[in-house]
Design a protein around this nucleic acid. Sequence first.
DNA 1: GGGATTATGAAATAATAATTCCAATCTGTA
DNA 2: TACAGATTGGAATTATTATTTCATAATCCC
Lengths: 281, 281
Amino acid sequence: MDERVPRDFETLRATILERRHSLPKRIAQIAAYALDNPDDIAFGTAASIAASAGVQPSTLIRFAQQLGFDGFTSLQLVFRERLRERNSSYDERLAALRAKAEEGAGHRAIFDGFVAAASTSLSDISRTLNEPHFEEAIALLAKAETIYVLAKRRSYPVASYIAYALGKLKIRNQLIESAAGLNAEMVGFATPRDAVIAISFSPYAPATIEETRAISEQGVPIVAITDSSFSPLAQFAKVWFEVAEADFAGFRSLSATMALAMALTVAVGEKRRDTGRKRKG
Amino acid sequence: MDERVPRDFETLRATILERRHSLPKRIAQIAAYALDNPDDIAFGTAASIAASAGVQPSTLIRFAQQLGFDGFTSLQLVFRERLRERNSSYDERLAALRAKAEEGAGHRAIFDGFVAAASTSLSDISRTLNEPHFEEAIALLAKAETIYVLAKRRSYPVASYIAYALGKLKIRNQLIESAAGLNAEMVGFATPRDAVIAISFSPYAPATIEETRAISEQGVPIVAITDSSFSPLAQFAKVWFEVAEADFAGFRSLSATMALAMALTVAVGEKRRDTGRKRKG
DNA sequence: GGGATTATGAAATAATAATTCCAATCTGTA
DNA sequence: TACAGATTGGAATTATTATTTCATAATCCC
């Protein structure tokens, strides 16, 4: 038997999907059932599963053997292991990840730490997002002629994704980055009919603050994404969001900020389409 | 028998805790074991559980009977039901978010959609990360003189965060972006003592592929982050990761890629510190 | 269309696991 | 210390469940 036996559920699943079309009818039937009802496989008996799937117990065993297991029992172990891994509730799983990461056991722990930080940030923002502010920000950005996107350093990746997405949605935008050294001039072009998305977290990049101040003095409305009401960005902004990103090993997760940024962008795109349609009709 | 049989896990747990002090020694022992290792009760056999807990199988059955069950089997059902419910809760919650988002009810739904996509991607990668590849990539990058970071378009935000983090960690790196139009020259400087992190997802940016090919022909080892084994990046890479990012409204979540990228970066930083310490000591 | 090969169903059998039983041991009380 | 009642250990028994086997049916290939 040269075929390797799938040890984990994901591999098993992939193997099944791959062979799906070359399997005999009844075996295919139990294969489909297994992927649709993995819990039943984990807990049932050969007879009960076979009955639910509409086949004979022996077919179930043949299925297991085709996959390289020596019987139903060893196939079932994979389905059980899957449940064990997933078993703990979401929060418990996170806590476990985080604990493991913090006791610092090896490289896998580092990875787990970043995953935990990202997940925590996402569930935080999902709970705390201020919906009126969100709507207001969308309205404000939707009517802007050009959207300026302003962020440096660790916030810059978010800005670049916003700019990419705005471009895809055919919304005129201008990313203000440090490279060219022409920021002051670029900022100077903005008018009150435009709008700005500014992103900065403590410690706030001085350039971001300075540029935000300058642009707000020109009367350009600002949507800020930052981390607290003490943020210097908050005072310049017409609408601002407080996003608490968890960090790990000194690097902030960007997942919550990214989700908010993308939602803003796509919502603005949608609002513009709707408005355009109304005007025409 | 007037005592009511606990049907769900929480009730069962409460009942056990309440009677804890009035139970005989061995029964108390198995009770403690059951609350500490509920998964083992769910999946094990009476004999295996008894052995793990250090009691006789008959004690386990007496324990079940004291609680009002008619045997071990019916007690075990409660532990299994718990796993089924727990397991579905998180996925169901996510599915609900996603469903609401997809039926498109307002702007909040857009936000929820992005949060759901990010969460899904994170839990996927957490399950499927190939650890040997991860270790291999870290080793490869840790001994590079300069790390080149290569990504365009939607992958570019990840690259820029990697470059930021590498800089913070004082690891020499070079971000290859389109802006300056000097990519070919920059790529030309790389030697086999360097290394590359290349990131690209379908549809693959032609420039990324071309530059990756060129740099691999110079013998520079490549770590690729991409989305399938059919990716053109995979063939040039020494190590590659398959990251399945969920998308929403046509925009891919970057959260899983970000987490992997940050973990790689920090792990490389850590490995370098360790190696440096060893050399000194 | 006929022979060979593969797939399927159903029941027999083997293996495994739960439960029961009884003797031994412990615990508390007079 | 002796006794009664409760608790425990370990093996025997019963039950359940997985697996094998074999006859039958379907499918493929010539």
